[in-house]
Design a protein around this nucleic acid. Structure first.
Lengths: 152, 152
DNA sequence: TATTGTTATACTCTATAACTATA
DNA sequence: TATAGTTATAGAGTATAACAATA
């Protein structure tokens, strides 16, 4: 075992004490597992979170969705264009504010979201198997704490 | 208090139960704090981790550094070009394998690394203030566990 | 004046394919 | 044949500036 790769491990030992570095590595790994397991029309984490927000809070304006997800208005346009061209999301002109679009899921969007959520449940179960249910819960709390570090 | 922003909080409640989403948000926040606090020639996390590996394990080939950091050979070239043009890193032709470059820090690179590490210590201290010393330690262990989720 | 959606643009990070020179 | 470094390139993700329509 361990043919001759000691150096690789040794030089990363320092970095493994850095929360930022380990967060990045863990996030890449978790995203890769998520992407690898999803199969429907929605494969990327960004699309998925967008579907969730629109699905659970129908009628939000694009600006509100941006505020919720912490992304820029300019970058949401192409993301919605994509989901709309797949027939999953619908832009509806707002009667109250004629500048704004109210976002809704189509029936196909509802189905895609339900399917993605079911697959994601298995993904989350794999995480729970690694960390334990209690460990996962404390992790979520700590990550919420870290999000307050920077205004962003 | 809380003028009329309930919707923003309500629609993200679901996502806050997703480890992948919270990992991403926390990583963005922690990186922003790191970047905002660094002041020397090295400001980005990628540069910083590169300096650490080369500093602690001088003489590694580029391929070994890539394996250690989990990045692609092609993407390391420009990163080293950048650090080399700043006079922080030096490529040395390997005598044993004439295809390979052995990487070293220059004197300026050593100084830049020491300065960045000192600033990073304060950054890590802010994290410890948020999580507690024990909480931070268990977080690091959990993140290491999560890195095993996907081969990557 | 300020805000919404939009376009254009640019910069970073990441990923693949192909080339060269060595092994 | 396989590997090390390199180049070119393409795709995401993210950032800013500016514009038209509307508030």
């Amino acid at each position: 075992m361990a043919p001759r790769r000691e150096t690789t491990i040794a030089c990363v030992a320092d970095l493994e004490q850095h929360v930022g570095y380990m967060l990045r590595r863990a996030q890449i790994s978790v995203f890769a597992d998520f992407i690898g397991s999803q199969s429907g029309p929605v494969t990327r984490p960004g699309q998925f979170s967008l579907l969730i927000v629109v699905g659970r809070s129908p009628g939000l304006s694009q600006a509100r969705v941006c505020a919720a997800l912490g992304i820029k208005r300019a970058n949401l346009v192409a993301a919605i264009d994509d989901l709309e061209s797949q027939g999953l999301v619908r832009r509806e002109a707002s009667a109250a504010d004629r500048r704004a679009n109210r976002l809704h899921l189509t029936a196909a969007g509802q189905r895609a979201l339900q399917k993605a959520l079911a697959i994601q449940a298995a993904h989350e179960a794999r995480i729970t198997r690694l960390l334990g249910a209690a460990g996962r819960k404390t992790l979520l709390k700590q990550l919420a704490q870290l999000s307050k570090l920077s205004a962003s």
